[in-house]
Write a protein that binds this DNA or RNA. Structure first.
Lengths: 340, 340
DNA sequence: CTGAAAGCGCTTACAG
DNA sequence: CTGAAAGCGCTTACAG
């Protein structure tokens, strides 16, 4: 039922080779012939089959993107910028969601490879997959770029943020504003939380204000769960400990949870207590007061990942590069500039 | 460099036909042969090329999804449920973003067709594309499902919400709680806002409380822009008009903007003023107080769209169906139950 | 149970 | 400037 190049050739009374040439414009075709063929293409509403083209040309214009979840304020922004950058170069995106599951991630990649993608971008790759040989063997045959994957794997390019510096900037900002007793809020095991906690411990130890009990872990959860879990944990914490003047949250959702907890306890942010988040998701600009946070450069992550992948594709997967972006502080309304 | 079925056949000392049979398990193969082939497949890490398979089989296991933007609290949730439903049936998703642009939408669809998708799901299809003959002609050759597209086009299935009923439920809830003077907030031209405004006008006219000046349009914008624009408009409005006891917002972002404006003016929500949103995005569960809103059934929209598409694919694009979901009220914390 | 061969829709040397 | 033919990686009647 679908129109093929054969149908066009027949109707235009030329060979399929000629139709192919006018389609691709890569060989001389007599003007008259060209017009005739183009007319038929229009008439028949012919769309060339890219699958067949790619099979012949032995190259692909599809890119795989695997991400832990779409349903999150962080990933959609990154995906948007990947899509924009790649579409401009004629690539399409095949999306696969791993649901934070290690094996599903492997399945996604295998499916993408089977679909003959020219390369794949993985957001937040699973640590155990990185450490196993999975990525090492895959990376030999197809260009791979990690976003926020601490890629010790050779032959994989990556873009990430220096979250350690980001945490340092955030904590310095609090400390410079005279905050000494700072609550640290994190979630369950994640390399990213570990990095921030490490920085927190070293800085607070330096200032003689490190107390292990000022680190709380709100457990796991997504979206509004994170907020709710944080509200519970922070409420518990603050009813017992009022020495805290500032809160460092490992992401914006936790920061919003902390702010909400304060409100319920009748504490004003930032007058009574300051809060700083991490990520600079859209949410940080939506809540009231607007959240002071650390910018995770989401669109830069996406753009750079797209570029690195294109580079790998162009140079036959031969060179790898790591790009580390510096996080920067976004001052809005939730940190009291005088401290206490 | 890539391993093909040829390589496997050679190493296993069988024909490619036999390899294909053990791959697909659709023909009898001697146990011994099967094992030998499977062993080689493992050794060589062979992944069959789906593009080639689909070219031969003349069918596709890729589905196109086109959406106006990924960067939005509504679409990612819908896409997630589409992905989940479709992955379970062995399909993959090719994503294309139209950036709210009519022509880009057409380009997306054409690209997807060229990539030989088995069908396409369009979120919020552009009205002018629906009215032109574009979709009509496309729908003849490939299964198409609209989400929230008021599809008058024959041969296209669709899932949508009855937003008119949704608006009615929301307004009735306000009115039953004794709210009479209700502010209506909408954005720039969209069929969806028009439907809600129409309902608003008819219901408020009925109760003799319709005043055209109580309808405000905050212009266009996405994400935090919407919130900011709403804050400005509502602040302006409320400084001049304090008779309002409730606000109906056409989406959750506008509702949050309205709440933020109230806070800045020293008005408590819901004690001084009630706010109801629309959509039930994750945001409505994140803000404080939690937003009372109308559920847009985002995951149901996705699931149903996936099902309708699968149905069309199975039955050769021969049957179409429209599903209209009923919105329901989600009572949380922003509407004062006594009114005023 | 297995292999040889045709064919899916395209592109591209090759020959003219 | 144009056509015939090989080939991309697979599947599936057909024959044995």
């Amino acid at each position: 039922m679908k129109i093929t190049i054969q149908d066009v050739a027949k109707k235009a009374e030329v060979s399929v080779a000629t139709v192919s040439r006018v389609l691709n414009g890569n060989y001389p075709v007599k003007a008259e012939t060209k017009e005739k063929v183009q007319k038929v293409i229009k008439e028949l509403n012919f769309i060339p089959n890219i699958q067949a083209r790619e099979l012949t040309r032995q190259k692909s214009t599809a890119i795989g993107v695997v991400l832990p979840s779409i349903n999150n304020m962080f990933f959609p922004e990154v995906v948007t910028s990947i899509e924009t950058a790649l579409k401009a170069k004629g690539y399409s995106l095949i999306l696969c969601c791993s649901n934070n599951d290690r094996e599903e991630e492997v399945r996604c990649i295998n499916d993408l490879l089977a679909r003959n993608v020219a390369g794949v971008i993985v957001l937040d790759p699973n640590t155990s997959n990185i450490n196993s040989d999975f990525y090492k063997s895959i990376a030999k045959t197809v260009p791979i770029v990690f976003i926020n994957g601490h890629a010790s794997v050779e032959n994989i390019s990556s873009v990430s943020n220096d979250e350690s510096i980001g945490a340092e900037i955030a904590l310095k900002y609090l400390i410079n504003n005279n905050h000494k007793n700072i609550l640290f809020i994190r979630g369950e095991n994640s390399a990213s939380y570990d990095i921030k906690e490490k920085k927190y411990i070293s800085m607070l130890t330096n200032s003689n204000h490190y107390h292990p009990s000022n680190v709380i872990n709100i457990g796991k959860g997504n979206g509004s769960e994170t907020v709710d879990n944080t509200i519970v944990s922070v409420t518990n914490f603050l009813t017992k400990n009022r020495k805290i003047t500032a809160i460092f949250a490992c992401n914006d959702l936790m920061a919003v949870g902390a702010i909400n907890a304060c409100k319920r306890l009748g504490l004003n942010v930032p007058e009574d207590i300051s809060v700083i988040g991490f990520d600079n998701t859209e949410l940080s600009k939506i809540v009231e007061p607007k959240l002071t946070t650390i910018d995770q450069n989401m669109s830069l992550l996406g753009e750079n990942a797209a570029e690195l992948l294109l580079e790998k594709i162009t140079y036959n997967n031969e060179f790898s590069k790591k790009i580390i972006l510096n996080n920067k502080l976004v001052i809005r309304e939730t940190v009291n500039q005088q401290g206490d």
